[in-house]
Design a protein around this nucleic acid. Structure first.
Lengths: 183, 183
DNA sequence: CCCTGTGGAGAACGCACGTTCTCCGCCTGC
DNA sequence: GCAGGCGGAGAACGTGCGTTCTCCACAGGG
């Protein structure tokens, strides 16, 4: 098996397991049996579990933001695009297996013990925040609005994760609509 | 040492350690040496670590909500009280050792593996949500506003925890002010 | 003075898991 | 056909930790 193929398979398995059960509840052996990549190979590709966790967060980060951006770009109108963010969140929340925000969960689990992981979580949130800032700027809204939209999105993610409901996306969307209108 | 004293000391130590480092990073032996309560006693009081975690979350829940309510009750005017919630959050975020919301962190860490812990997190968030609902009702605001205020507060907590800044409290307060005015 | 029970200190046990090692089959180049 | 090395399976190792057990000091009642 090609090395890059093994890497993808390992990351596929790691993502599903880490996200679904939490990082600490998943052993390297679980990743091995779910991916079919031998332990030896796993440790060649990722010299420690922490590296695998970082790679998981990084790959998921780019995919997550790409999918969000692709969904948003389909909408026309700067304000419509802002609201599209919450529509996309609502779809995400409704997906089977949704268990909250992978980065918030990872931060709760490892943020205190692993600075690399904490740093990746911060980088992801910073990027998302900047994306919302850019959407707000395109809509000609004051700079402060980006931060408010961000807080609504974060609150929706964490609440949807804990309650298992997609409703927070609608609540956040409605709040965003009012904020954009009022600003 | 009296049994109830031992229980309090154990919970004091557990709270500081669990909150500061995460639950899984703290061993029962750490709780023992930090509290001065022997392992035997610890296991008499809390037959398993999970019970200690539950007790930690429960005691912190009542204290957290009492302190919030006490702070809010000092303000006059229904809308002022709503904004006081975010002022209180800002003070909390600025406290030394602040590491985000204990329940969100615990959910990220244990939510997938421990239903009792997940249930306590849900109960805490439900109670906080209902508290905001009651504040919104007293201000004569539409029922939907409570949920929006809740999402802002959750977003602020999680963002303050990850970034280590108290600024999200101000951003959330400003957003809440606009939402209350617009509603 | 002994017997009993309570509680503390810390060793011991069992298990899970991150990481490494051993063994062996198989493929490739001669 | 064969030497050498690459890779897989899984055992082995070390450690950490939840939980229990052992041993002992000591207080109180006969």
């Amino acid at each position: 098996m090609d090395s890059s193929v093994a890497r993808e398979r390992a990351l596929d398995a790691a993502e599903e397991l880490f996200y679904g059960r939490g990082v600490q509840a998943v052993g390297m052996d679980d990743v091995r049996s779910a991916s079919g990549v031998s332990l030896k190979r796993l440790y060649q590709l990722f010299p420690a579990k922490e590296r695998l966790v970082e790679a998981y967060l990084e790959r998921r980060d780019t995919r997550w933001r790409e999918q969000l951006a692709a969904y948003v770009e389909e909408r026309h109108g700067a304000r419509e695009r802002i609201l599209a963010v919450y529509d996309w969140l609502g779809r995400w929340f409704d997906e089977p297996g949704f268990r909250g925000c992978a980065w918030i969960n990872a931060y709760g689990e490892l943020g205190a013990m692993s600075t690399p992981v904490a740093e990746r979580v911060r980088a992801h949130k910073r990027a998302f925040r900047e994306y919302l800032d850019s959407l707000a700027a395109e809509a000609g809204l004051p700079a402060a609005v980006g931060g408010q939209l961000f807080l609504l999105a974060e609150g929706a993610m964490v609440t949807a994760g804990i309650t298992g409901s997609a409703k927070p996306a609608n609540e956040a969307r409605e709040a965003a609509r009012l904020l954009v209108r009022a600003a």
